[in-house]
Design a protein around this nucleic acid. Structure first.
Length: 521
DNA sequence: GTTAGGG
DNA sequence: CCCTAAC
């Protein structure tokens, strides 16, 4: 983007009379690698120039349109597409007046949303954020419903801009969007988050509604985008006239102008701020400590069960409870769930790797594949009930309708990406398993898995084997209970219908299971 | 990669 | 359900 900007600037001779100050910038525009910092330092060191620069941007943005030939127009189309947003960015970043408000707001939001720190030079950070959001916009611009040719948008904007020349309005047209004359101002505020491209709104709203997939580039583009968009939108609506008239008193006026919309909109966006930090944040927060703690504990516990492990355990509990607290919010429906566990988890597992929007492949064996459909949330539910209660649970399930049970059982994953709690075997699953055993015989677990549990990502062959083993035990228990004895003691074994256990017994005679169990019978 | 078996 | 040895 920077590159494009530079090109753009270099292509514009008009700059000269306007901004001698820019020489330092423009002297070496051909260099592709002019660092953003250089670019940004400029703003940092001289706020006023920054303001001037916007003007120039606007200016040559417009002049460019007039002067260029058709081809050049096309050539620069890309650049020009970006421009509006850029202009906005600069406005947004103008260190005086508006931007300070924005900064506060942004900082606030950033802290609330992602725990991002903007400690040192916040304005620089902001610039980065803005530039990133630009990238987002650029990339999002392709598939969006382009409104460029929408004349109504232009007219509306012209209304806004008053005596501004058409060129500018044309360039703004890109992000002005649809016939907003019919929108209420609130709607516009919400609509305008799409500030460059209509489609951006979708991105943002997606982020809001299903933060789920946020795991990907949450901390990067999306966050900044989502945070910045509303602002830029407001800046746009309120700012354009002032900016383009090159007023001498843009700051005070802008500040007053901007304050209201921002404050007004804070109400609507405050909700977002209240949301919990993204799952990724939670994970990163809780994971390193708890993991390392686990390790240490494993070492420490056998040797001494003194105080140290305990203390550490408290620490861990603390961390976990924090996570849990937050996630209880989540389960309360307030926050967003994170269905794409894998991304989140792997990110946190390879926690130091840059957060990229790519899917890492499972680094271990098939047992990890369930990540694909992993949902983090149920793990808490399971964590709440004592382990042993699981025994009585199947009973309920057995009386339940079988249909809704076996599908979509969710995988519960521990922090280390491992399944931590039982996914109870449903009756239908057991039936399937039995069918599989009767079909393939005992021991061909992978065949059975492929054939009868193709869709259940959990239920690895090992799981089938284990379950069969348990079934055999249960059937043995059934036999013994049948022999006499009080049956209540064995009830624990039989959440399963007797018919099933009987089948297990039969199969066990037909397909002898290795060693002990067989001899047991 | 799969299976058996212990934990 | 996890882990690991053995195949």
């Amino acid at each position: 983007m920077l590159k494009q900007v530079m090109e753009d600037e270099s292509a514009i001779p008009i700059l000269e009379d306007e901004a001698i100050q820019f020489e330092c910038l423009l002297v070496e525009p051909q260099d592709d690698h002019v660092s953003m910092d250089a670019f940004l330092c400029f703003h940092r060191n001289s706020p006023e120039k920054c303001m001037e620069m916007e003007d120039v941007h606007c200016k040559f943005g417009g002049d460019n349109f007039v002067a260029d030939t058709e081809q050049e127009h096309l050539l620069h189309q890309e650049v020009l597409d970006i421009k509006p947003s850029e202009i906005e960015a600069e406005k947004l970043l103008a260190p005086n007046g508006p931007s300070s408000i924005c900064e506060d707001y942004l900082l606030d939001v950033e802290f609330g949303e992602s725990g991002l720190k903007l400690d040192h030079d916040s304005s620089v950070e902001l610039q980065n954020l803005v530039s990133e959001s630009h990238n987002q916009v650029d990339s999002a611009g392709d598939n969006g419903t382009s409104q460029k040719s929408d004349s109504s948008g232009t007219t509306v904007l012209n209304k806004f801009q008053g005596d501004v020349d058409m060129n500018n309005s044309e360039s703004h047209d890109n992000f002005s969007g649809t016939a907003d004359s019919e929108m209420s101002s609130d709607e516009r505020l919400f609509k305008y988050p799409t500030f460059t491209v209509e489609n951006m709104e979708e991105d943002v709203s997606v982020v809001f509604s299903e933060r789920n997939s946020e795991s990907m580039n949450f901390t990067h583009g999306l966050t900044s985008g989502e945070v910045l968009c509303p602002l830029t939108a407001k800046q746009e609506t309120e700012h354009i006239p002032v900016d383009q008239n090159k007023n001498e008193e843009p700051l005070g006026k802008d500040a007053s102008l901007l304050k209201n919309p921002i404050e007004a909109s804070i109400g609507s966006y405050a909700e977002k701020r209240l949301r919990k930090p993204p799952q990724r944040f939670i994970d990163e927060l809780s994971e390193p400590k708890s993991r390392s703690f686990h390790k240490r504990r494993e070492v420490a516990t056998p040797s001494s069960k003194g105080k140290f492990p305990r203390i550490r355990s408290h620490k861990q509990c603390d961390v976990q409870s924090r996570a849990e607290t937050l996630s209880s919010e989540e389960s309360a429906g307030k926050a967003i769930q994170v269905p794409f566990g894998p991304l989140v988890q792997k990110e946190s597992r390879t926690s130091h790797a840059p957060i990229v929007a790519k899917v890492l492949q499972p680094h271990k064996k098939s047992a990890l594949k369930p990540h694909k459909h992993a949902v983090l949330q149920p793990h808490k539910r399971a964590a709440l009930k004592p382990h042993k209660q699981a025994v009585s649970q199947p009973h309920k399930e057995a009386s339940m309708a079988e249909s809704e049970k076996d599908d979509d059982a969710e995988v519960k994953l521990g922090e280390d990406g491992r399944r931590k709690h039982h996914i109870l075997w449903t009756v239908s699953e057991v039936k399937k398993l039995i069918d599989g055993v009767s079909q393939y015989g005992v021991g061909r677990w992978s065949c059975i898995k492929k054939d009868l549990f193709p869709s259940s990502a959990h239920r690895t062959p090992v799981d089938l084997k284990d379950k069969w083993r348990n079934l055999l035990k249960a059937s043995c228990a059934l036999r013994e209970s049948n022999k006499g004895e009080d049956k209540k003691r064995n009830l624990a074994w039989r959440p399963l219908p007797k018919s099933i256990l009987r089948r297990v017994t039969e199969l066990a005679t037909i397909h002898p299971y290795p060693r002990d169990l067989r001899s047991k019978r």
